[in-house]
Simulated assay, not measured.
Amino acid sequence: MNGRVFVLSLLGFTTVFGAGLWYAQLYAKYEVTDGMPTVLAGGVERPVENYLGIDSVTSPLKRRGCFTVDPAEFADLPTAERPTPLSAPGWFECYDYEALTNDIEAGRAIAYLAALEERNAADRMIAVYPDGRAYEWRQLNAKYLD
């Protein structure tokens, strides 16, 4: 009888711990930001509309954002060397990193370097489509990717 109680207790603890860990990784560490009127790119505040983003203090690589812009506002920025959009939690639906990656590689979107080493060796990138859709993320600086 004691072995059965121990096994059930262990399974219960493992289930609760696993659920807590899953929640912490996918939900608890993120802060949602919406309605920002501008984004900083190339040291200049640039107007945006419909901003929806996520970020976290636990990692510089957790920032993602979706918004609309006038593509001409970003024409003076340098293009990104090796833009690599990172995945976002599944509940952040406006950001599809696979489609974004494919569109950048195919030339349907242009990725710009918005900020060099913005936070802990992470550069901030902004990809802009000709129709004004835009996305931002942070990735490791190119010198760390080699």
Rank of each mutant, 00 (worst) to 15 (best):
N141M: 06
T84V: 07
P37R: 08
R82P: 00
K29N: 01
P71C: 10
A28Q: 12
L21Q: 13
D76M: 03
P89C: 06
R133M: 00
L11K: 13
Y27H: 15
Y144L: 14
R63W: 00
G65D: 04
M125G: 01
S56H: 13
T14W: 13
L86F: 03
W22Q: 08
D70I: 02
Y27A: 09
N50S: 11
A142F: 10
L145R: 03
D146E: 04
V44C: 02
L77I: 06
S56M: 10
P60F: 07
K62L: 14
Y97R: 01
G90I: 12
R63F: 01
D70L: 04
L113Q: 05
K29D: 00
G42D: 02
V5R: 08
E136C: 01
A72L: 09
L26P: 00
F92I: 11
L61F: 07
Y95S: 13
N102T: 11
D123T: 02
N120K: 02
L11M: 15
N102Y: 03
R119H: 05
P130W: 10
C66V: 15
P89K: 04
D131E: 13
D123P: 13
G43P: 04
Y51F: 15
G90K: 14
A111I: 11
E81I: 04
T14P: 01
D123Q: 09
P60Y: 07
Y144M: 04
Y23N: 06
C66T: 07
M36Q: 14
A28T: 08
A88I: 12
L21K: 07
L145N: 10
G65H: 00
C66D: 05
K143G: 00
D103C: 10
Y97I: 00
N102R: 15
L26S: 07
A121P: 00
F67G: 14
Y95C: 10
V57R: 10
Y129R: 01
P130T: 12
V48C: 11
P85W: 05
I126F: 09
L116F: 11
A24R: 13
D96M: 02
A28N: 14
G18H: 04
V32G: 09
N50I: 09
P71V: 01
F6D: 02
K143C: 00
L40N: 06
M125V: 15
E136N: 05
A80G: 02
F67L: 06
Y95F: 15
M1A: 14
L52R: 15
M125D: 12
E93H: 00
M36A: 15
E118C: 09
A99E: 15
W137V: 05
G3Q: 11
A106H: 03
R119K: 05
T38E: 14
D131T: 10
V16P: 10
Y95K: 07
T14F: 12
E136D: 11
Y97S: 15
M125S: 02
D146G: 07
G3C: 02
G43C: 06
L61C: 03
Y27T: 04
F17H: 08
V128D: 12
Y135A: 01
V69N: 08
R82L: 12
T33P: 06
W137M: 02
